[in-house]
Design a protein around this nucleic acid. Sequence first.
DNA 1: CCGACAACCTGACGGC
DNA 2: TGCCGTCAGGTTGTCG
Length: 275
Amino acid sequence: MPELPEVETVLQGLIPVMQGRRIARADVRRAGLRWPFPENLAARLSGKRVLGMRRRAKYILADLDSGETVILHLGMSGRMLIGADGRAKHDHVVLDMEGGPRIAFNDARRFGMLDLCATDTLESHRMLAGLGPEPLGNRFDAPYLRARFATRKSPVKTALLDQKIVAGLGNIYVCEALWRARINPATRAADLDGRQVDSLVPAIRDVLAEAIAAGGSSLKDYRQADGELGYFQHAFAVYGREGEPCKTEGCTENIARISQSGRSSFYCPACQQQA
DNA sequence: CCGACAACCTGACGGC
DNA sequence: TGCCGTCAGGTTGTCG
């Protein structure tokens, strides 16, 4: 479920109920998800106050007053249920906020992860070290992407999914960004001309920004940071639209689907031709 | 270095 | 109603 916009939406939902507040009690229901939880997780969360919260790539980070930072990843199906009773199927970690709601980390497929790391060594944590720049940040620009793509022989689709090149994109938004930039997903990154690489930067920034804006409005309505796609799913141009008409003005082609490294890529064969 | 693929899991859906 | 195959928003590790 969660790519960068969904994670950002979840974060914005968690901040009002967690930041500055104390975790009265933490209940840890299993030994781990994708990886084992850290030792004594419940005790290391219980009674701690949450200081700053922020997002890095698809990770949510929460600094605690104990000098540790919570590192949370929602995987494919992870959700943060605010105001939950904590007894739903797949509620794995439940937080009772002091004077506030109960929050459940619910994850059916258990691909999510939760770790703790000393705040002052966070950057070298194995999950965070090596991540590329934030696509919405200043370090992600056309010269950077040109340099990274210059020697990259893999398909541009694969390159954009590589979190070491740019951190936070997933299958949906890579498909959407490539459609906006009119680039075929199978084109090798190194074969793109400079103008095409340049056009990817605003395509990526715009689609993410629009999705965040849509997620924010859905959050406001439902007051639930559950990671569900917001209204933006109705605005997908290509993702999940195999056989449906391309949304480009005047284009009569239908959206096609191919498989690349085990994932579906959706694109318009007319608008996104091989370089 | 690269890419294809399996692995980790549950749930939803279509076909029969 | 149920059984089966397929697919799903992510990441890591192995193998060729």
